[in-house]
Design a protein around this nucleic acid. Structure first.
Lengths: 173, 173
DNA sequence: CTGATTGCAAATGCTTTGCACGCCA
DNA sequence: TGGCGTGCAAAGCATTTGCAATCAG
């Protein structure tokens, strides 16, 4: 849960403002605050988790407004909806900085690692074209488990997950 | 919507029977019928679509039983839950035959194309290990659009999608 | 027989929406 | 002033669950 490089949230606010203006919508204190909170950390979040931040900072915005603002951010391409396997939608605020990153999910602790690889990107691009299509976006999710848990019986991420009270992925019942 | 190679549904019934036996569960007419329907076509389906087939063939099974049987099939690894971007879960009956295939979704018509590529698989495997993990499963979704629609202004898949009354993906509002 | 399975309806959980009021342009 | 935006509560929707009756082994 380290915080983002300073200014990232401001950049997002500006971009949303631009988008809003072009669509003839209005800039409001609620929208500004929610955007700032969405980009204040580089972690993925669910709608409920974002609403938690709203409450934590005593922002005057309802759950409905949080949902509506998230939709706006997705439409403006500031936020991306990703599939981490859970039952609720997860949003990723890091596509502005890393436009084509992928996700590796640890089956043991649920920790998500982002990674980029140009070969992977290129290969997918070629395959898509060979099938007669024009590539628009690609998303890759790898499920894996730490070597360390398997060989040494313990997993640093697992401990970390417990400390941060993170929900384990649904598949691990 | 071509039907599957003959015997595929029987093979699935047998595999589920095996799984059920090992877990001390019971074989029932409902389960048998639902499994047969799930593997009668090689198309992906939602729970509701599978329940539609149940009604269409006058099978005596409730919606709840369909949901419960799907869970069983996923647990037995006969069916795989995949993410096609919609709001409801989609199930893929083709992983028995093609254990590591991926999906390309046409943004224009929503048509889903399955493809396999060993290079892609190998590359992902290497990347995962380099990050210190042991790969368990990978899923790739590529969103793209037909060259043909772009260059000629028409898309055979689009027409096909209309004819078969398939729901277009949610992202295309 | 005994406990798993089913159907039904009610409950759940996330998300969306209708509506009246308030506020931005 | 004209709408857009907001909050609230109600509605929606897919999915799950409690319970009594039924059925498989």
């Amino acid at each position: 849960m380290r915080s983002r490089l300073p200014g990232m949230d401001e950049a997002a606010v500006a971009k949303l403002d631009d988008f809003i203006r072009r669509k003839g919508l209005r800039r409001t204190p609620q929208r500004d605050a929610i955007v700032r909170l969405a980009f204040s950390e580089d972690d993925h979040f669910t709608s409920e988790e974002l609403f938690d931040r709203v409450r934590k900072f005593n922002i005057n915005a309802s759950r409905a407004t949080v949902y509506r603002t998230i939709s706006l951010l997705v439409e403006a391409k500031l936020l991306r909806e990703i599939d981490l396997g859970g039952d609720t939608k997860t949003y990723d605020p890091n596509f502005l900085e890393k436009p084509s990153h992928n996700h590796l999910v640890c089956i043991d602790c649920g920790k998500v690692i982002e990674f980029e690889d140009s070969h992977l990107e290129l290969l997918n691009d070629c395959l898509t074209r060979r099938m007669g299509f024009r590539p628009m976006s690609q998303s890759i999710k790898i499920e894996a488990c730490c070597e360390r848990l398997r060989t040494k019986g313990s997993c640093p991420n697992l401990i970390q997950a417990r400390l941060s009270k993170k929900r384990l992925p649904a598949r691990r019942r």
